[in-house]
Amino acid sequence: MFEFKSFQQPADDHFVKNVPEDIDMDEDDEDFLETGGMKLTWPGESLTSSQDYMRGHGTYVDNEEVVASVSGLVERVNKLITVRAVRTRYNPEVGDLVVGRITEVQPRRWKVDGNSRQDAVLMLSSVNLPGGVQRRKLESDELQMRTFFEEGDLLVAEVQAFFGDGTMSLHTRSLSYGKLRNGQLVTVPPILVRRLKSHFISLPCGVDLILGLNGYIWVSKHVKENEREGEEAFDAEAVYSNRNDDIDDSTRMAISRVTNLIIILASRSIPLTDTILLDAYDWSLEQEGDVKDLLQEDASDALVTTILAKG
């Protein structure tokens, strides 16, 4: 029942083993300055001379040299050198699909935590209101904003625009957006969610996934296409409901399994796509262990090896 383990001891010879001897560490290649060149960097690495280039985000100037301040990918636009960090908060772009959590209800707007640098804003005018999609908002709507979304609620939305200070403004004016129910949230680094054709994924195991580009992933019970709320007419009661449907045992297991798989893949920095998740799910079904055993080190190692082998 109680399992005590040791923290991983760093092996003394770890780094020595992995470096081939004939590599010249001081090699001064500046290929990344060519168009299309790719280079990974780490904090403190000097990139180029500050006299020829300008420093951008993720860099600083020291001793007339542009030095990286984060680890990530070096990018160059004309004379501007920037480093795009591997671990970072979400950088929103208009049209992105995000999953967020309401943090605050304010006059005519909600504040939404979207894993970005600032809280996002969801205006009352950018949600679907009861009684029809195209309707002017009324004072009564302002007074009952908490009946739509209240603090802690999860929602799926689209980035609509930016405010002057870079805050993103969201909208849920589509029938596929809105409040989230029947499942659980799992968080991954935003960089691991790629832009896909659709971010609503249905796995054949009865699980729906919403891959938010901000790294929030909603794993929930599959709802049949024709049973979705507001399919024929917009039904505010159903869309803003807090009540879960009945979820049977196998679906619950499947949701937990998918969640654990996402956690494992994310901790190994494997980008999440529907095919990878499907492969991983099929693999995990063939294994003997329970859902919780997936998180054990050897099981997750085996999973990652299998996934990487499939390419």
Partner: peptide, 20 residues
């Protein structure tokens, strides 16, 4: 919704928790 999902999972038999 998350809260009731977790509660319902704990009270079903056999009980189910988020991470199995």
């Amino acid at each position: 919704a998350e809260k009731s999902y977790i509660q319902a999972g704990l009270l079903t038999s056999p009980p189910r928790r988020a991470d199995g």
